[in-house]
Structures are given as C-alpha cells and as structure tokens.
Amino acid sequence: MSVQPYPAETHPVDAHPVENLRHRERTNRLGLWLFILSDSFVFGALLFTRFYLLGNNRPELIQWLGLVVTVVLLASSFFMNRAEVQMSLGNRQGFLRNTLVTIVLGSLFLIGVVGVEWQVAHFGPADGAQGAIFYTMTGFHAFHVFTGVIFLSLVYRNAKKGLYSAEHHWPVEAAAVYWHFVDLVWIFFYPALYLIGTAL
C-alpha cells in the first residue's frame, strides 16, 4: 500500500475525545441503539415463530380489548415524547407530569394484557400453538413494558431530585427511546396477533 501521510493538523488532538462529555453522550446513544438492534432480533424471531406455526390463522381474542390496550400504549408514547421535549426545554414540572402519565398508561397496558386478556382468553398457554404463541409474544412484550416502567420510575425519581438539566439528561433520552422501541414492537405484534388471518 502506498504511503499517504495523514494531515495530522486537520484533526484536533488537544483534548482526548473521551474526556468530552458530548462525545460520551454520543457514544452512549450508539450503545443504546445497538442494544435495540440486538433486542429487535428477539422480537423478529417471535414474529417468525408466529407465522411459521400459525400461518394465515390467528388466535381468537377479544378485539375491543386489543384495540383499547393498543390505544393506551400509543398514547403513552405521545406523552413520553412530550415529557422529553419538556425536559429539553428545561421545564421540570412539565417533564414530571408527562412522565407520570406515561407510567400510568404503561401500567394500564400491563393490567389490560396480563391482568385481563390473559385471564379471560378462552385458551391457556398449553393449548396448542396458538396458546404458546399468544402468551409468549405478549409475555416477552409485557416484560419489556414492565422494565420500561421501572426505568421511567427511576428517571422520574431522579428528575424530581433535580439531577437532570436541559442540556444533560441522557437517562431521560435513553428511557424515552427505549419506551418508543417497546411501543414500536407492539405496532408489529398487535396486527400479528389480533388482525392478520382468520381466527382459529
């Protein structure tokens, strides 16, 4: 390979980039997105499982309940976004209010899926492929919602203590991105479980 000496003066080397907080946050952001990429392989594989085993059939579920929990979860993402915007505007009260709404809506989603749908479904986890798929897909997703609620609660508590500022609130951003990711997963899971194909 030919020698092409790199023009060193074009690269500022006065401060080691690691010490730079902004650099740190960009690295954190990359880490979070890599994690989401990795996690999406789990959900992708679950979708594959669902179509492999059930094909053009779907479990028979309570349609209005599915619609309600979906609306609740989508609405929670709306408030999550408002919360993050309020934080970057430096409005802590607005952040706390909107985050609280997000936490409540997320918990309502969990109650709707695990507390109601799981109890009233007319098949159990051991009833054939549809039981296996329905309980596993909603279970994996609900577990993520649950961890998201815990994450948001910690962020809520720390924001209340005044640990975040308009410029530096990486944990808030991380929690928000994670929450939107969990929401996005449901946008794929809801039609796969409730809408596509004919009910068994």
Binding site: T49, Y52, L53, P125, A126, D127, G128, A129, Q130, A132
Partner: peptide, 21 residues
Amino acid sequence: LFGMGFFNPANGGNPILFQHL
C-alpha cells in the same frame, strides 16, 4: 414448564422451527 406447544407436534408445534431458530 408450561406445556406450550412450540415444538412438540402432538401439541400443535413443529420441531423444524427450533432448527431454524
């Protein structure tokens, strides 16, 4: 643990699915 029917054909599953995953 729960008797879910992913891979056992007797319960609606398909062992080939496991091999794909």
